[in-house]
Every structure is written in structure tokens, then in C-alpha cells.
Design a binder for these strands. Structure first.
Lengths: 178, 178, 178, 178
DNA sequence: GATGAATGAGGGTTCATTCAT
DNA sequence: GATGAATGAACCCTCATTCAT
């Protein structure tokens, strides 16, 4: 069996994403991790602290999965389109739970400045990644916005329909930009 | 002073939107409403029940405010652009709290089917409203997606920057569609 | 059986005095009072809140017991001497637990301003009571100081020896003041 | 840097006196001492054990400071009066935290016999010191009682007022005893 | 001689809900 | 129609201590 800290993080990766932050109690985390309560607090200052580690780890995981998923793409256009396929892939894998960053953003009061900062910085990194791939600033933000929208609306309707539709839209945008 | 039921709803309209569902306790609601606990449960079966009433009332309020805000528009194009101005207006009025429907969607476990259904139906109504104004189905969904994205990202960054950018994008889309 | 609030207070009167504030947990209080935890917090905002009620109630109790004990005294001198007998009486009754106000003063960090204020005000009332009985300000404070000292040292040595000695001293002071 | 054991004791000297026994956790002690937890328990059997060492060290420190402070005195009377000045000096230096022995006495349940014994023995030593300086047993206890009272009441009111008053009283007592 | 990891028990507090009146 | 009292379950967190290395 792995070390407690690792077990806690593994459990948290699942629970925070699937159930949300407020719906996941420390008690469930330690039970699922087979760790004592005091042991948990030896490794994490507070639940908020764990949340930040979660957000960091989630971002690393999500980005690497995305990179991996689109790595076969030959052109920039293909990269973008595959990114949307990735959303479909993740929705099916994770049961349409949407974006952990936006979910937690909705849950956490704005007084928790640290967490908000982390969420923003990760989301900004994603937006920047879109920008890097395209010279046209306007176009990249345009696609980024559609991307975020796809995440949110597919969670909302528990369906990939709008993602597929968006793929056509994006294809059109990229064509007309050449 | 108005009737208890009304007072509860008025309080709830503020608290659920500003603090979220899980961060708002029944105790705060009844205290702010100057209503007894037993009285609360006489009017609402449960907190979930209140949540549904909240969602309905919030939708009615939000749509009517939107309609009112864009009522002066002469053309369809103007209506759309004014809709985005409305988002800016609301962000400033409500301190970038985003969309109550999406916020609660993030907070509530998917087992609470009833609430999810209500959220979906209201959001679908909004999407349909976009569709009604435009013959082009693809275009209206395109704009709808940008609209949702603007709500989410402006909440995230606590800034109207992307909304303004999106207005330009939408303007372009509407022009080229004629 | 009496009402929960009363039961809680009765339990608290015993436990805070006998065990001290920090050594008495909410759990023990509610168990001994046969009251649920949530019920406790319906009646008392916090443990600190309960502490303040305890201090008030303790003062009222202690003063009335004192008044009652010395009520038979014919002269001022007799009143004073009987006050010291009262300390002996209470030590035997309460197993040399000393003064709840001073005990809690020792336990509570000075940041808890409210509690410190209450302690001071009750102790000041006692000092003032000594002053009222004697024109000579210096003498009354002198006796007051010996009184406090008797409480503290009898708790310390778990013995009434010094109280008895002090009675002689006070007798001498009062004689020479005439 | 000094040895772990010494560092722990130095930290404890400050924390137990300033915050009290129950309000000072082992964690704070080892952190402030830059010592590992296991290392702590190698040097001290338990927190109670540390407490006893603290009491011993505190007594040695306090007495030596007192001796030093009053060492310039030419007469017995002066020695006594300077002792009260010492209380004022210490109150200002240590922010009116009173007597560690009495504070801990208030905090510790009487079942902890060992600690109570140590407290008593140190306090008895102080009382004996007063006795040594004066042939008159009654008078020395009288002054000793006023001394204890001054410690307690100055902590209570966070003021040296009563100490100054007591100095006059003691001066009177010593005069009339010659 | 020194350490970081791990713990059982308990700390105080809040939750949404029910019930007797 | 309205209420205050009462609750079981859960909340996040800290305590002094032990153990394997």
C-alpha cells in the first residue's frame, strides 16, 4: 500500500472532482484513504490547503491528458479540433462533471482569496495555451471561449451534442482565417 | 411588513445568489427573514424545495431584467449586442457572482434530479430564446455559447474584459451572416 | 425533569468550578445534562458565552451565600470575621477549589476580553462591598487583600490554617482602628 | 545553537508563563524550539514531566531575580518594601501574567498529585523566606499574605495600584512592630 | 541521540429537520 | 397559521503520545 499522503491525494482527486468541495467531508476522505484524522492534518494544514493541492494536481493531470490526447495532430487546426474531442472523451470518462476549477469557483466564497487565485491562474494558463498556438489573438480567444462554453454546457445538459456542433463552428472559423 | 413566505423568498433571492446554496444555511435565511424555523418549514417542504422556488423566481427576474434592458433595440443585431451589455450591467450590480443556475449546478450532487431538471429547463429556455431571434440555427447557438462563456469567464476573472471582446466577435459574426 | 437550559447551567456550575474551564468539555456538559449537542448551542452561542453566564451565576450564588452566612452579625467587626469563617465553610463544602474567577482568569488568554471584563467587574464589586462597610479606605483594602489571599493560599495548601491566622490579624486591625 | 533539551526548556519558560499550561501545546513547544517531536519525548517523559521541570526552573529564576533586586537593601524593612517593588518590576516586564505557580494550580486537576506537590513546596519556600527575615511569625505571615494578594490582584486588574497601596500598609506594619 | 510518520480520542461548532404546543 | 425547543449526524480541527527507522 502506498504512503498516506499519496492515498489522501488519490482519494481527493476522485472525490473533489466527482462530488465537489463542500459535499466532500474530511471524514469521507480519511475513511476512503484508510488514514487517521490526525494523520491527515499532519500532511495538510487544512481542507483549504488540500483544495489548493488538488487544484494544482488536477491541472497537471488534465493538461497532460490533453497534451497526450492531441499529440498525434499534424496541423494546428487538427490540434484544436482534437481538443474538443478530448472534452467528449473526458465527459464520458468522468460522467459529465465539467470543470473542477469552475465547479469549485462556484462553491467557494470570494473571501478565500488564495483558492480563487489558484483557480484563476490555472484557467489563465489554459487561455494562454490557446493563444500560443495561433497568431490571431482575437481568433484564439474566440475559440477559447467556445471551449469553456462546451465544458459548461455539456455538464449542464449531460450531453456532448453542443461540443460536436462547436467542432463544426470552429472548423469554419479556422478555415476562413487562412 | 410583508408575509413570511414572501420575506423568506426575498431573503433567499439575495443569499443563494450571493453566497451559493451550500454556504447559505437555513438559520441565516430565517434570521434575515425574521421568521421562525417552524414557520419556514410550513411554507417549504425542505431546503431543496426552496431551491427550486429560488431557481424559478431567479429565472423570471433575470429574463425580465434582460428583456427590459434590451427593449430599446431596433434591430436583431442590436438586441444581441445589448444582451452582452446586460451581462456587464449585471456583473457590476451583483459583484461578478456569475450565473446562479450554473453555480448551483456545480454545488448540487447529480442525485438531486429534480433540481438538475429545473436548472436545465431554464437554461434551455434561454438557448431557445436565442434561437427564436435568428433563422440560422448554427449562428444562434454559436452566439449562445459565447454568451454562456462570457458569464463564466467574467465571474472567473472578475472582469468584463472578455465580454467587450466578445461583443466585437459577435458583431463580426452577425455582419458576415447577412 | 427541569428544562434543558437549566440543566446545562446546573451542570456547568459544578463542573466549571470543580474542574476548571479548559478541563471541562462541551461533551461532558451535555452528557451530564442529558441534552443533545445541538440543543446546547440553541441556548448558548458558544462555550465562552456559557462561561460568562457561569461567572454571573456564580457571583450571584457566592455573594448571596456570603450575605446569608454573615447575616446574623451584630457589628461590622463581626461581619468581617464571619466573612473569613465563610471561606472556611466554602472550602470544606467545595473541596478547596478556591475562587472560580481567579481560576478562570488563570486559564483564559487575555485576548478573550469579554470574559476578563466580567471577571474584573465581579471582583471589583467584592472589593467595593468591603469598602462600603468601613469608612477607612486604607483599612478596607487591607482586609480585602487579606481576604483574597486567604482564598488563594487555602486553595494552594488545601488547608484553612492561614484563614484562621488571618482572623486574628484582622481582629487586631479592627481593634486598633477604633 | 544550544542543545535540544535546553532549547525546549527555554521555550517552555516563556510559553507556560505567558500562555498557561493548557493553552500551550506540545506542537508549539517543539516548533519554537526547533526540535523534533520524538526528540522531545526522549528528553521529557510527558508534558506533565516538563511542567515539573518548568516549575523548578521558574522558581529558581524568580527567587534569584528577587534576591538580586532587593540585594541593595540595608535594613529588613527596606528588603520587604523592595520586594513589593519587585512585583511592579516583574508585572511590567512580564505583562501582568501573575504567578505561574498559582496559574498552573488553577489549571491542573487535583489528581495530578505530583505537580500540586511541587507547586506547594515552592510556595512554601517563599513563605518560609518571609519568616526567616522576621522574628515575629504573625507579622511575617501577614506580610506574606499581602504579598500573594498583590500578585493576584495586580494580575486581575492589570495594574500596580494595589501594590503601591500595600507598600504603605506594610510600612505601617513594620513601623508599629518596632 | 535523533527523527518524521501515524494515531485514538476528543476539541468546539453547525447542519437541515421534526415535534409538541 | 405560527412557534420555540430539541435533535442526530456531520462539520473541520487539535490534543498528547507512540512507533518504526
Amino acid at each position: 500500500m502506498s504512503k498516506p499522503r499519496e492515498r489522501i491525494l488519490n482519494t481527493t482527486m476522485i472525490l473533489f472532482h466527482q462530488q465537489g468541495y463542500n459535499n466532500t467531508g474530511i471524514n469521507q476522505i480519511i475513511e476512503d484513504s484508510a488514514v487517521s484524522k490526525a494523520s491527515f492534518y499532519q500532511h495538510f494544514k487544512s481542507k483549504d490547503d488540500l483544495c489548493i493541492e488538488f487544484l494544482d494536481k488536477r491541472y497537471a493531470y488534465w493538461i497532460s491528458e490533453l497534451e497526450n490526447f492531441i499529440s498525434g495532430a499534424q496541423t494546428v487546426e487538427e490540434r484544436f479540433l482534437k481538443s474538443f474531442d478530448f472534452l467528449i472523451f473526458m465527459n464520458e470518462k468522468e460522467n459529465f462533471r465539467g470543470c473542477s476549477f469552475l465547479n469549485i469557483l462556484s462553491e467557494i466564497p470570494s473571501e478565500k482569496v488564495e483558492i480563487h487565485k489558484v483557480i484563476r491562474s490555472h484557467k489563465k494558463a489554459l487561455r494562454d495555451a490557446f493563444n500560443k498556438d495561433l497568431k490571431d489573438d482575437m481568433l484564439s480567444d474566440h475559440i477559447y471561449l467556445l471551449f469553456e462554453s462546451c465544458i459548461v454546457t455539456s455538464q449542464l445538459y449531460r450531453s456532448n451534442e453542443l461540443i460536436k456542433k462547436t467542432k463544426s463552428i470552429v472548423q469554419g472559423l479556422l478555415l476562413s482565417s487562412c
